[in-house]
């Protein structure tokens, strides 16, 4: 076990733990945001740079600070390491810069984006973004395309986190989409018109931190904050059948995996609770589900507002 201090909070963690994971063990304000790292998908992380933190003391043995900010998702802790997240001005600036970069080419089409209300980029922009834009150039645009008959790709919104590529590599038997071109022209694509047909491809939607990959069966049906998330389960031979159904009245509008406060799928029966495409896209009939009860969404974005808390609590949370 090694000792690490993050924003004046100290915790003992196993050797090899990353700073981000140690911070999540502490919980609360010390946890850096993460847009590309996804603990259930090995190999992700390091790319978006939103989780940058300052290491003001490398370790007990070698107390020198690290000269650059480091990606907390991929930097292992050392014994006696001291990390600054919220308490570092440099982190604040660096992260603000990253948010600005992520937004310069973003269409800011939240009003017509299905992800609005549960979007990590919205949260990030809210917490670390500046007001207005200094970007005077024309934004980069792509045509939205269908990848398969159930998934829509809006490349304009993509932040190139590579999570969906990891899903295809790790959950499906054959990857048909990937990252093409390079630099600012890099894009997610199948290249040739190629449908992603696989029982677990729908999980790409759940891992997408923004509205780049959306569920076509839910497209423009409702805003997420008008829906009530309910914990539900069904008999399924392909997956655990444990999901969240998003309801309006007695109607199921969409089905997602059960996700934790960091937007990651929770473990079900000891393994990551990915859900299959049948559950996600085809079971919109209430009779197919056993509905256990309301699902608390422990996140700060708007979907967590209003439904299960008193208005007073909600207001406090926004502030």
């Amino acid at each position: 076990m090694v000792k690490v201090t993050i924003d004046d909070k100290t915790i003992e963690v196993e050797l090899g733990t990353t700073i981000l994971s140690a911070a999540r063990q502490i919980g609360g304000e010390v946890v850096p945001p993460a847009m590309c790292f996804y603990s259930k998908l090995p190999g992700t992380g390091g790319k978006c740079r939103t989780c940058l933190v300052e290491v003001s003391q490398g370790s007990e043995k070698d107390p020198r600070p690290m000269p650059k900010l480091v990606a907390s998702c991929s930097t292992p802790v050392m014994d006696g390491m001291v990390v600054k997240n919220k308490t570092s001005e440099r982190v604040h600036e660096g992260r603000g810069g990253v948010v600005e970069f992520l937004l310069i080419n973003h269409p800011l089409d939240c009003p017509i984006c299905d992800q609005a209300g549960e979007c990590h980029l919205q949260d990030l922009g809210y917490e670390h973004g500046g007001q207005g834009t200094r970007y005077e150039e024309e934004r980069r645009t792509f045509d939205p395309i269908d990848i398969g008959n159930k998934i829509k790709l809006h490349m304009n919104r993509c932040i190139l986190c590579y999570r969906c590529v990891a899903v295809a590599n790790q959950l499906t038997d054959k990857r048909v989409h990937g990252v093409l071109n390079r630099g600012e022209h890099a894009e997610i694509s199948t290249y040739i018109e190629n449908a992603i047909e696989n029982d677990f491809s729908g999980n790409m939607i759940d891992v997408c931190p923004v509205g780049a990959l959306t569920d076509k069966t839910f497209r423009f049906k409702s805003r997420v904050w008008f829906l009530k998330p309910m914990e539900a389960s069904c008999e399924c031979t392909k997956c655990s059948g444990k999901a969240v159904v998003w309801m309006f009245g007695n109607e199921i509008f969409r089905v997602t995996a059960r996700k934790d406060q960091y937007g990651e799928v929770e473990d079900q029966d000891g393994k990551a609770g990915w859900i299959c495409n049948d559950c996600r896209f085809d079971k919109k009939d209430v009779s197919k589900w056993n509905i256990a009860g309301p699902r608390m969404i422990n996140r700060h974005s708007v979907i967590s507002q209003g439904h299960y808390q008193s208005p007073r609590q909600s207001i406090k949370k926004i502030n």
């Binding site: 024309e138 934004r139 980069r140 792509f142 490349m155 071109n181 894009e187 290249y191 040739i192 018109e193």
Partner: peptide
Amino acid sequence: MGSHVHTPISE
């Protein structure tokens, strides 16, 4: 300069 990107699908 400003750019609409058409995926350059190979012929």
